[in-house]
Design a protein around this nucleic acid. Structure first.
Length: 359
DNA sequence: TAGGCCATCTGGTCCT
DNA sequence: AGGACCAGATGGCCTA
């Protein structure tokens, strides 16, 4: 269950080990098991000794050997109701063979563990490059794969269309098929990043205009799929409170199905992909004029609202479930600031693109 | 207690 | 023969 995703392992009772995740394949639990494979689940090797000696095949082999020794001519006959086994005759499990078999099994188990650890390690690496990353509250394997797939697709679409995407549609694309908690997490991650960036910029001397101090922290993680959609827009309330009064859609599916931009419709979802470009949830398109006057205004997940003035109030920047909003409806799904990253500190490419985006 | 997620063991299959 | 890969089974941990 993804609930684990949003639990803080550090809050576990004293002495209670959080072994739900194999941290880089080196969790305490898995390490212990590596050291002592017999601690694993299921049949242990020690137990296997007897089991292998007595398993069906072995028993059959022994039966066959006995049969062979006693009555060769009866090979095609059945022994009672049980049909006689065909194929190569199994040799008797001598103690030496049993020992070899055990050794083989142990080696195979060890390899399998290593293989799974490698797999988990790769999955961890993948977690770090998808739009939402947390060291302590990881996405589950399946959600990581889904998110990665969505991410690739979304970025590919941006390249394909050459248009600055609608943030809402972008997030929706990212979250397509994800569980509700993960969707919250992703949205929260993106929002956090934007807030952090705003904070940084303001502290750096106001290189970029600071947004309205009452910048919205919307209690509902899912606004309507497009803020520009008629049912979601409030033309008369430009500030953050506007967003709070918006009707919101209860499920992501309902949002996505009806309102996503054409580029993100599900029919194209499985289509051919191409390489992505993305920065922290902000999209940087090469053909865009980064030096345009509007550019600075768009640093905060700013989306161009077609047909709307570029001076659209900051309150109209999309804000998802707030991390800082303790009283928010989905506050339980929100990660602590220090724990979340939207990988702007991970890849040189991101920095490069960031620079491009903010110049 | 049920359900989700996980690590591990295991045997089967395929390939070298 | 041995290794890689896979899927099923099992049991632990955790949360609702």
């Amino acid at each position: 269950m993804l609930t684990r995703l949003f639990s803080d392992p550090s809050l576990l009772p004293e002495g209670q080990k959080y072994s739900g995740w194999a941290e880089d394949s080196e969790s305490e639990d898995s390490k212990a098991k590596d050291d002592d494979p017999d601690r694993g689940c299921g049949l242990q090797d020690e137990e296997m000794e007897e089991d292998e000696l007595l398993d069906d095949d072995s028993r059959a082999a022994e039966d066959e050997e006995d049969d062979e020794g006693e009555e060769d001519e009866g090979a095609d006959e059945t022994e009672g109701d049980r049909p006689k086994k065909r194929g190569p005759k199994k040799r008797k499990m001598t103690p030496a063979r049993v020992e070899r078999s055990k050794l083989r099994r142990q080696k195979a188990n060890s390899r399998e563990r290593t293989r799974m650890h490698d797999l988990n390690s790769a999955l961890d690496n993948l977690r770090k490059v998808v739009p939402c990353y947390s060291k302590t509250q990881k996405l589950s394997k399946i959600e990581t794969l889904r998110l990665a797939k969505n991410y690739i697709w979304a970025l590919s679409e941006i390249l394909r269309s050459g248009k600055r995407p609608d943030l809402v549609a972008y997030v929706q694309t990212l979250c397509k098929g994800l569980s509700q908690p993960t969707t919250n997490l992703v949205a929260g991650c993106l929002q956090l990043n934007s807030r952090n960036f705003l904070t940084e910029q303001c502290q750096e001397g106001g290189r970029f205009p600071c947004p309205n101090p009452s910048f919205s922290m919307h209690p509902y993680p899912y606004q309507c799929s497009r803020l520009s959609s008629p049912q979601c827009q409030s033309s008369s309330m430009p500030n953050s409170h506007t967003l709070r009064t918006h009707a919101y859609c209860s499920t992501y599916e309902s949002l996505y199905a009806g309102n996503a931009s054409p580029e993100y419709n599900s029919s194209e979802y499985e289509g051919p992909l191409s390489p992505p470009v993305c920065v922290n949830g902000n999209f940087s398109l090469k053909q865009q004029d980064s030096s345009s006057p509007d550019h600075d205004k768009n640093y905060h997940y700013s989306m161009h609202y077609p047909g709307l003035p570029s001076s659209r109030p900051p309150g109209h920047n999309l804000v998802f479930g707030s991390n800082g909003m303790r009283g928010g409806v989905h506050s339980e799904n929100v990660l602590p600031y220090h724990d979340m990253h939207v990988h702007h500190d991970r890849q040189p490419m991101y920095e490069e693109l960031n620079a491009f985006f903010h110049n």
